[in-house]
């Protein structure tokens, strides 16, 4: 942002302003994202859809502050992430964002309870949050699997652990990168329903990427990407 202030931009809960991302690939460059601008409101349940290589994951990574744009700005809750140091960005991620990954990404040496508790321990809070963690475990239907390690759980169960882990810090935004890609269609549907219920009941904003058309239909707000650009943006009821 060169001449404009945040106020002048009238930013929302999550705003992307002309975001570009270029990756070097040998001697050439790959333009993964080309001038994406978005404005997301709190409480939205958004799907970023598109074929493989359309830039879905890159956009999610930039919204989640785990990747930085080559050009443009990502503004989270009125904070331009470009101006933040790594320590501040990590801290912002920890308190503001929850992550759900395509391949679950659980810590293999921790059991269900410990995996969900993990983000809380990073805050070094002495206060025990056992009741909250147990509530989440119940919410995702893993009460009987509390002491099991990831390798003892099915794909669907692992993704439920990942959802509970994403929610444990009570983030305002949850980013899910292809959360159903490694699951069968029934389980995938249940996972999306679970996310939708949490969105409805707790008001948590969800942004998930998918290339599954059936799942896309569940979202309130759909952003379709093609070749790193927004091809279509749909709001339910519009």
């Amino acid at each position: 942002m060169t001449n404009q202030t945040l106020e002048e931009l009238a930013v929302g809960f999550v705003t992307l302003q002309d975001v570009h991302k270029v990756y070097p690939l040998g001697k050439t460059e790959v333009h993964a994202v080309q001038g994406v601008s978005l404005d997301i409101q709190e409480g939205d349940f958004i799907s970023i859809a598109g074929p493989s290589g359309s830039g879905k994951s890159t956009v999610l990574n930039m919204i989640g502050c785990i990747d930085v744009p080559t050009k443009g700005s990502v503004i989270l809750d009125s904070q331009d992430t470009k101006t933040l140091k790594d320590r501040e960005i990590t801290s912002l991620r920890h308190r503001f964002i929850g992550f759900i990954f395509q391949s679950f990404n659980l810590i293999p040496v921790l059991n269900t309870y410990e995996n969900i508790e993990f983000p809380l321990l990073l805050a070094r809070k002495k206060l025990s949050q056992r009741e909250w963690i147990e509530h989440l475990i119940e919410e995702v239907g893993l009460k009987d699997w509390i002491s099991h390690r990831p390798n003892e759980l099915s794909g669907g169960q692992r993704q439920r652990v990942a959802i509970a882990r994403a929610l444990v810090t009570k983030p305002r935004l949850v980013l899910a990168d292809e959360p159903t890609a490694n699951l069968d269609s029934d389980t995938g549907e249940k996972i999306i329903e679970l996310m939708k219920r949490i969105n409805r009941e707790q008001g948590t904003t969800f942004i998930f990427s998918t290339h599954d058309q059936d799942i896309v239909q569940i979202a309130d707000h759909v952003i379709r990407l093609l070749d790193g650009k927004i091809a279509e943006e749909q709001r339910r009821g519009q």
Partner: peptide, 16 residues
């Protein structure tokens, strides 16, 4: 690598 990426994503600081 995967674990490190995950831990960093969920809020683990570099020094940790």
């Amino acid at each position: 690598v995967k674990e490190i990426g995950t831990m960093r994503a969920v809020g683990m600081q570099r020094k940790s």
